[in-house]
């Protein structure tokens, strides 16, 4: 089967590089699946998992936003932070989740900290889910 080159890049360096058969992820406008030969495209991503299918196995990468750039022979995901499933520090994510939840309970709605805590919670939940491969 035809494959497409995928790289996930963060400011701290490349996180994932491989040839895969299909990339699927959650863009801001909805679920998105990319196969080799896709037309050039750019789309912003949601906090979520990127699934990379190759042969029988699927790799998971947790990304915190960022965006996806597609070319016919290459897909690049630029995110401010990203981790492969087995590199996620689950304990830290659990702690971050508790912290964010606590903050959400204390804060009143409609202020900036609330928004930030919400995003932090999303990121933490995303990391935990990716590390457990619940997709």
């Amino acid at each position: 089967m035809k494959t497409i080159k995928v790289s996930v890049v963060t400011p701290d360096g490349p996180v994932y590089e491989s040839d895969v058969e299909m990339v699927s992820t959650k863009a801001q406008s909805g679920e998105l699946g990319i196969l080799p030969g896709h037309i050039p495209m750019v789309a912003p991503l949601q906090i979520g998992a990127v699934r990379l299918k190759n042969g029988g196995k699927t790799d998971f990468v947790a990304v915190s936003g960022g965006f996806l750039e597609v070319r016919p022979e290459q897909v690049t995901i630029l995110a401010q932070s990203a981790e492969q499933a087995d590199e996620i520090d689950v304990e830290r994510a659990v702690r971050a989740k508790q912290r964010a939840e606590q903050r959400l309970n204390e804060q009143k709605r409609e202020n900036i900290d609330f928004r930030r805590a919400e995003l932090a919670l999303q990121r933490a939940i995303n990391r935990i889910e990716v590390s457990e491969r619940k997709f």
Partner: peptide, 11 residues
Amino acid sequence: SYEFEPSAEEI
């Protein structure tokens, strides 16, 4: 030249 999903402004 890219396709934009949803639009260039959003991106």
